[in-house]
């Protein structure tokens, strides 16, 4: 004969045990974020209608929860390109493209912003290049 109260206790115990959730609590250390730009190269010159490839490798010793990619006109602070991605990884390959429509000469900044787990802070890496008509 099945002991129903005992069975219910076992069922409840299974639920209780299966409801525990461990979490990686590694303290965030933003200095350990690395961003290696492959493109654009510092000082690179692009012209109107050129396609600018933003390629970079992002890595960290724990969880990266997101990256943002922006291209900013440093003369006006206008953001001419922006993209972001929610992530849950320790490495990510950025591969974005933007067609230069700027008709004036200006210095552009490619900015990669990295968000990591267990931190409200963010870290940024920049590279500068030039747009010319």
């Amino acid at each position: 004969m099945i002991n129903i109260p005992k069975s219910l206790m076992v069922f409840a115990s299974i639920l209780l045990m299966a409801s525990c959730q461990k979490k990686d609590t590694t303290p965030a250390d933003l200095s350990k974020v690395t961003v290696t730009f492959a493109s654009p190269l510092a000082g690179q010159v692009v012209h109107v209608n050129d396609t600018v490839q933003v390629s970079a490798e992002v890595s960290y010793n724990a969880e990266i929860i997101g990256v943002g990619i922006q291209i900013i006109d440093t003369a006006t602070s206008d953001v001419v390109f922006a993209e972001d991605h929610d992530l849950h990884t320790d490495h990510y390959s950025i591969d974005e493209s933007w067609v230069n429509t700027l008709t004036d000469s200006t210095v552009l900044c490619a900015k990669v912003t990295v968000f990591v787990a267990n931190s409200d802070e963010r870290t940024e890496r920049l590279t500068y290049f030039t747009a010319k008509p």
Binding site: S19, D24, A62, E63, H88, T89
Partner: peptide, 14 residues
């Protein structure tokens, strides 16, 4: 529903 794990072996809780 409990939280998902993005990487269970590393205990990355979403």
């Amino acid at each position: 529903s409990l939280h998902d794990y993005d990487n269970y072996s590393r205990k990355w809780l979403n």
